[in-house]
Amino acid sequence: MSALLTIRDLCVQLGGHPILSGVNAELERGSITAVIGLNGAGKTTLLRALLGEVPRTGQVQFHCGHDHSRPQPQHVGYVPQKLRLDANLPLSVLDLFGLCLRRWPLFAGLGRRFRQRVIDLLARVDSAHLVDRLVDRISGGELQRVLLALALEPHPELLLLDEPAAGERV
């Protein structure tokens, strides 16, 4: 099977410290690849480097014909391990989708059609019941499913998941 992504001599330094030091790999198209390693090995930084969120050197080449110099949601979906939001922010799951998917500010209102669209997206991950819940009041596993529903809209070519099972309730 062909490669979707080729990584050559990828290096990342953060705060003057080397985090990634010459990563070479090919990501097989249509497959699931897992990155394992101890804390601090550079796993999350690798995902962020592929997203272009951290300064990097080396080559990250996509073989899909799209311009990935600035990754777009329709090409790369990302589910972080946690959200970096103020815990006191009264933000509902519906609001979160509005912030991410709509061009208008939240105070313009979201409307019935958009609400139904969000319910349909959440239903893909069995989470339609979370639509009106506050983001800081749902469990880590529920939040990951919400973020997964967001990452799957629109259907991305590459999905990056950071610790997908970590927030699941046992």
Partner: peptide
């Protein structure tokens, strides 16, 4: 769709992944 995931859960990795880095 192609998936690249980071995990400490080796049982899950063993279950779902085709490749491991």
């Amino acid at each position: 769709m192609t998936v690249l995931l980071v995990s400490h859960d080796l049982s899950m990795v063993n279950r779902v992944a085709r490749h491991v880095w």
